[in-house]
Every structure is written in C-alpha cells, then in structure tokens.
Amino acid sequence: MPFLSMPTAAADPPQGGAHITGIEHVNDRWDKVSVYSPAMNQVIVNDVFKAPRSGAPTFYLLPGIDGGDNLDPGGNFAPGAKSWFGMTDIQGFFANKNVNVVSPLGGQFSWWTDWVNDGSKQYQTYMTRELPPVINAQYNTNGRNAVGGLSSTGGTAVDYAVQAPGLFRAVGSYSGLLNPSDNAQQVSLTLMGGGLSADNMWGPAGGPLWVAHDPTKNVGKLKGTAVYAAASTSGGEGAVDRLPEGFGPNITGGLIERIVSDSTRAFADAAAAAGVPVHYVARPEGSHTWGLFESEMQESWNTTIGPALGS
C-alpha cells in the first residue's frame, strides 16, 4: 500500500520552459500528456481527463509513494496503472463536471517535493511552476487550480498551497501525513523502503526544511485556501475499501491509516486553534486502500474543491 476565496496566481515557468513532447489520445476525453521538466531534465507523463467545455478549472491529483506503479510482490499491474486513472473511476465521476483532472505519474519514493540533495527530484517545482502553464495553454483553462494527494502526498498537496501561495484555491489530503516534522521517523522508514535517505530530501530530520514543509506547523499560511483533510480513525476494513472477498485483515493498511488519522487530527486541531477553516472528516472505517482514497477524493470535490473552483 502507498504510505502515505483568493485571486488566481499566474504560474511562471523557469527559464528554458517546460513543454509538451507528445500527447497520446486514449479516448476522446483522456489524454496522456508527456511534459519535459527543465528542473529535473526529464519527461513526466500526465494523465489528463479533459473538461467538456473550454475555460474550465484544473484539479491536480498526486500519485502515492509508488508513483502509479506496482510495488507489491505478486501484484499484476501495468506500469502507471496503480494510479488515480487506473484504480478509481475518474472518467465516470467527472464525466459531467466542467473541470480538467490532471494526474502526473512517476516519482517513486520522492514525496513529490523538491529534494535538497537530488536534482532529479524537483517535483514541487514541476507541480507549481512548470506543469500549470503548460496545462493552461494546451487545454485553454481559466487558471483556477486545486490539488489533492493520497497517503505520502496528502501532506505534500497541502504544502503546495504553503509554498506557492495563491496558485491553488483548494487542497485535499486523503489519508495523508500532515505533520511530517513530528513523524520524521515514519517518513524516513518509508523512504528507506525505496533505498533512499530522508536526509537527502529536506536535510537532517526535524531540521528547518522539515518544519518549512510541515502543513501543521504552517497552518496559518492556509488562510484563504479551501482545505479538506480526511482519514479513518479505526483503520478497520469496511465496504469503502472494496477489498476482494476473502482478502482477510488488512493489517499493514490499518496500521498506516491509524498513523495518518492521528496526523490529520493534529492538523485539524492546529487549524482550529489558528482560526483557519478546514473541512475535517474522521471516517469510521477504511484501511488505507484505493477505495478509501477515492471516496475521500469524491467527498472533497463535493464539499470543498468543486465549490472553491466554481464548478
């Protein structure tokens, strides 16, 4: 399982300019758009579900720790299929909604942030400076943006609003880790699963960059941004998980979900103390599965993200 009203701001690309290198039309609404990132000197593939009409806003959805690929032994997933477009009903849910849904692929064990000691991992720069202008131009958007993330990228999605104020009108965390500086050991263990050191991401654990990228420590900077944050308090399996019959107890998923639930509650408490409105949902069941993430995402759209985007 993967672990984890404002004016619109223009997103200015770095010198050199990100650009589209190719578009694969999966169907009349679904494109796979390859975008060159100057910051990382690589091409990122992005799933795009096009709005039915031009001049629509854009909802970005970050992948989990596996970047859309399967990391579980014995699993049978095509590359890029363990993703929002492969594991949830993006096409059905958004069919009649006037919004562009964009989900980048890749970035395994990157936390989708900028790494201080690894130039190949500059995902915050990609998501906040490089990709939005390209999407805006290609799909004739209205420049209004929102972003959501699951598990490891739930906190990252909220952090983007802190790091790039005004770019995202709304953010959503779906069973995400929202206080990483207080959970540095959990983050470190997760990255070690990919053979990486968290010190190369934000420096020594608990240091100033960890605090700077901690949504709970910077919750005051979210004033004016619509925020949704949800997790399951029990970590117990339920119908929402959509697990196969006879799957058995989801022990690992349940443990992770309880960790992110505590983190989400700490974030919500900090927001309440700071007077920052947050749509916080403590769900009774769910064990860190795609079924749970999808349900949280859909709820976030109906309650928080869609209204903030005017859709």
Rank of each mutant, 00 (worst) to 15 (best):
F94T: 01
V101N: 05
F293T: 02
E245W: 09
A226M: 12
W30K: 12
F109N: 06
L209G: 04
A81F: 07
Y36K: 11
Y126C: 05
G107K: 00
K50I: 10
F109E: 07
P52W: 10
S261F: 10
Q15C: 02
P104T: 02
V187H: 00
N27F: 11
Q185S: 12
I23C: 09
P73F: 13
S263E: 02
W111Y: 07
M40D: 01
A239T: 14
G207E: 06
G92Y: 07
K97Q: 15
T125L: 02
I20V: 15
A184V: 01
G16E: 05
A157F: 03
S151N: 12
P204K: 01
K217V: 14
D72M: 15
L189H: 03
D28T: 14
V158P: 00
T58L: 05
D47P: 04
L255H: 10
A161S: 11
P204V: 01
D31Q: 09
E296H: 12
W84L: 03
V211G: 02
G220T: 11
D89E: 10
Q298A: 02
S263M: 06
A9S: 13
F293S: 08
G195D: 05
N142A: 11
L71C: 12
G246I: 09
N218V: 08
I90W: 04
R258T: 14
M201E: 05
A39K: 07
D182A: 10
I23T: 15
Y123E: 03
G119I: 12
E296Q: 13
G143F: 11
Q108H: 05
P249M: 14
S54C: 07
N302L: 14
K121G: 03
L209A: 09
W112V: 04
